[in-house]
Structures are given as structure tokens and as C-alpha cells.
Design a protein around this nucleic acid. Structure first.
Length: 414
RNA sequence: CGGGCCGGAGUAUGCCGGUAGUACGUCUGCUUUGGGAGCAGAUAGACCGAGUUCAAUUCUCGGCGGCCCGACCA
């Protein structure tokens, strides 16, 4: 894409009403626009990143048998009354409204209830389970306090998956495969090294739930980390007993702050029984379905990546989720040597199907480099008089600053 | 929800009970062109309401909004 065609612009200063690094950089670079506290619009660059993240998550969910769908945002009150989660005293993040005929509706802050109720239409026999479904959905939560830019908003994109299994054993097997899939997601989005499977409070049914916590000072959670074993324990469940059960020594645990980027847990048969979801086994006996729930905050993941990877110059995207792979920066003008050379390279790269943002704006080098650093595309290809003279292009790695000089053919072969 | 800080161009600020000035930014043009250049011109502002007052951006009160700490957070 040509940068002159991009309607967003970079800004020199961050808005006065943002403190969080992720919001300041994403706004300055033109990825997002703030609508109100905790509510952000995703502009073309921001949407590209979101879609990249979603594509990775989608691949991993499909790989373990997930089927993608999408549930409605408007939800029925009755369903949530069945599980006693309609009352504002029970769930304090509800946005609610009424239909014209004064019927109450809720705006989806979570989807276990409607999705499980819907499944009653499709699960009747042991032949119908297991089934794994997931969606990318905009959740609406009336948070008392939004904070940290896009990390904790009132409107955010979440991937939620639900598993419906025959029994505890098969549920456990899927649950473990979901853990692996999640770890692959964080690996692929560049957070692998600092993201840890974390034991957390499990609710009514199991001793633990599992969180995926990315170590960062901007995190809201405190976890106790065992770096060698790559596991952690959320402070909320840290007891001598738990430490022993997990086979670690308290003295080996390191206290750190972390961002909860994912969370999975076992509902057992609790929700199925409440909502009346069951199947008939081989003997015609009614059996409850075992339900698991698996979430990844897509927009929070994006914010976390900005937070942990950015440097003083701006955003640093991992290649896997960058809006573009290459930032072609022309220092020439239309019609001059470097300008023509950049145009040609852009056309050639585009023809090869390469993902390139072409800075064809008529600005001085300093501004273009500053913007390029801010936007954070992994590889910068500079076309200036140096390139005109030598026929080779300066290729700079955004993360390391490493420079190499490549010819057109070498670039097209990347 | 408890507590704190704050509210004047996009950003940072000066002055002020007499109706808003500066710098940077932004836009236009010319010159310039390898790390935010120069010149010229332009654009753009008191959150809302009530009260006090001859007069309120300024003082008082009430809203609204923003940020932060805590609480909360499948």
C-alpha cells in the first residue's frame, strides 16, 4: 500500500489524556482512535494487526478441531436467569437495554450461556460429542474502571472457545491440547518467551483454572514464576499446599507482574446441568455434557505486544503480526532517480505478493525514518542516492537495527 | 464503587474579574532533501449549567469528562 493513500497520519505528540504506552504509540502511529475511555476504534493499520492475530489464533483453534462461528451480541435475560447471572449484584459488568416491547436484553459480555443453550439443538446423542466451537466476538463490559489503553476496555475483541465433551477423560485430553494450542499462539505472536502457563483459582468444579500470563510491569496480576519449569502460580492461589502439589520449591519462585492474555477452565457438568444440555450414551442413558471454556483477549494481546516490544522510538512488531512486512521508504521525489527506483521496486515487490507499505510521501528523510520507527514495521528498505549509486538497497531490521545491503533480486527472493 | 489529580487550539504553556497571547504542531506555497530544515502566509482554543458580579476563561456550587491508586475482573 502506498502511504499517500493511507488516510491516517502519524502525530508528533501523544494526546494528553493517555498515559499507557500502548495507547500513546498506537494513537500516534495511527493504528487506533479513542472514542471514549476504554473504547477504541481500529483504523486500517490497527485492523491489519488484529486480523493477523486472529488468523494465527484461527489456525491453532482449527488445528485442534475447533469450528468457527459467531454468536449474537444481544442476549436473552431468561437464559442468564437460569444460571443466576443476570442480576447486577452477581455480574456487575452487564450493559442492558430493552426492546421496544420492553423485553429485557443484555449485551454479551460472555457467551457460555447462549452457546450452551444453542447446543441443545445439536447435541442429543453420544455421536454428537465432542464438539468444539469458537468465535471472535466483540465483548461489551461495563467496567467500573477502564484502564491501560486497549488493555482493559469496555469494548474489546475476544476469542472464546467452548468444548463439549462426553466425559472427564476426553475433556481432559482436549483441555491439554488447548493448552498446547495456546502456547503455540503466544509463541507465534512473539510472546512465547515471556508467557507462562499459570495456575489460578478454578471456581467450583476444579482445583485450578489455567491462565496464560505475559510478564510485564503493566500487568494487573501478580504471579509466582518458575522459569525453568515454565509454569507460574497466580498470587491468589499461592499456598504452601499448592506449591507442594506442583512439585516446586517456594524459594525457586520469582514474584512478577503479568498480563493475563488467556484463560481456560473446566466447567465440568455444572453449566450443562443448569441449562439442561445432555446426550444419550450407547445404552440410552442420559449423560451430562462436560463443558470447557477457553479465552484469548485479542485486543489485549495486541496491546501487550506493543507494551513489551516497543522501544523509545516507537512500536516494534514481530513479523507474524505486523500490518506489513516491509516498509519501503523512498528518499527521492517523483521523477528523480531514487523516486523512480522506489516506484519500480514497489511494483516488483507487490507483483511478488510481498506485504509492503510504500512511503511515497514527499517528506524529508528524518521525518520518514521517525515515522517508520514509530509504525514499527519489521523491515525497512531505504531507497536514496546510495541505492541509485550502488544498485543495492539498505535493509534495516526494526528490532535489532541491523543493516544489510541487498540487490533487487535478493529482496524479491526474501 | 471508595480515594486522588486534572479540565484554555493537536501538544506545552504565560497573563488575567474587563472577553485569550506565545511556542511547537497542523495546513498552503516556495526553497530544501539520508534522522523531525528554512522562509512566508494561514488554521485552530476557555467541557456544560447555575450562582455571585456592571462584567466570569478567571470566584462559588452542581453536573459531565479524562487519567491514576485501590476494589472488582471465567
Amino acid at each position: 500500500m502506498r502511504q499517500t493513500q493511507l488516510f491516517t497520519k502519524t502525530r508528533r505528540e501523544a494526546p494528553a489524556d493517555e498515559v499507557a504506552t500502548n495507547a500513546r504509540l498506537l494513537i500516534r502511529a495511527g493504528y487506533v482512535h479513542k472514542e471514549m475511555a476504554g473504547v477504541y476504534d481500529f483504523l486500517p493499520l490497527g485492523l491489519l494487526v488484529l486480523e493477523k492475530i486472529k488468523a494465527i489464533v484461527r489456525e491453532e483453534m482449527n488445528a485442534i478441531g475447533g469450528q468457527e462461528m459467531i454468536m449474537s451480541t444481544l442476549q436473552r435475560k431468561e437464559l442468564w436467569e437460569v444460571t443466576d447471572r443476570w442480576d447486577d449484584d452477581k455480574v456487575d459488568v452487564w450493559f442492558k437495554s430493552k426492546l421496544k416491547n420492553s423485553v429485557d436484553v443484555g449485551f454479551g459480555w460472555s457467551h457460555e450461556e447462549p452457546i450452551t443453550d444453542m447446543m441443545k439443538q445439536f447435541i442429543g446423542s453420544y455421536r454428537d460429542v465432542p464438539v468444539y466451537v469458537y468465535q471472535f466476538q466483540t465483548k461489551l463490559r461495563n467496567e467500573l474502571r477502564a484502564k491501560s489503553g486497549i488493555m482493559r476496555g469496555r469494548e474489546f475483541v475476544m476469542k472464546d472457545m467452548y468444548s463439549y465433551s462426553r466425559d472427564e477423560a476426553s475433556h481432559k485430553a482436549f483441555y491439554d491440547s488447548a493448552i498446547s494450542a495456546y502456547l503455540r499462539v503466544f509463541e507465534r505472536t512473539g510472546l512465547g518467551e515471556r508467557t507462562f502457563l499459570t495456575f489460578a483459582s478454578g471456581g467450583a468444579f476444579t482445583e485450578f483454572s489455567h491462565e496464560f500470563q505475559t510478564v510485564s510491569d503493566v500487568g494487573e496480576d501478580v504471579i509466582y514464576l518458575h522459569r525453568e519449569k515454565k509454569i507460574a502460580i497466580n498470587k491468589e492461589v499461592l499456598t504452601t499446599k499448592v506449591v507442594e502439589e506442583l512439585g516446586v520449591k517456594r524459594s525457586d519462585l520469582e514474584e512478577v507482574k503479568a498480563v493475563e492474555v488467556g484463560n481456560i477452565f473446566n466447567f465440568g457438568d455444572v453449566k450443562s446441568k443448569q441449562l439442561g444440555l445432555s446426550y444419550k450414551d450407547e445404552h440410552g442413558v442420559e449423560q451430562p455434557v462436560i463443558l470447557g471454556s477457553y479465552g484469548i483477549g485479542i485486543t489485549r494481546l495486541m496491546g501487550t505486544i506493543v507494551e513489551v516490544m516497543a522501544d523509545e522510538k516507537g512500536i516494534v512488531w514481530p513479523e507474524s503480526i505486523a500490518p506489513f512486512t516491509y516498509h519501503l521508504v523512498s528518499l527521492g521525489q517523483k521523477g528523480d532517480g531514487a523516486g523512480r527506483m522506489a516506484d519500480e521496486l514497489y511494483d516488483a515487490m507487490t507483483k511478488e505478493g510481498m506485504s509492503v507499505l510504500y512511503d511515497d510521501r514527499d517528506l524529508r528523510a528524518g521525518e520518514k525514518f521517525a515515522d517508520s520507527d514509530l509504525i514499527g514495521i519489521p523491515w525497512r528498505i531505504v531507497v536514496g542516492k546510495e541505492a541509485v549509486a550502488s544498485g543495492r538497497f539498505e535493509v534495516v531490521n526494526r528490532a535489532t537495527g541491523g543493516v544489510q545491503h541487498l540487490g533487487e533480486r535478493e529482496i524479491l527472493a526474501l
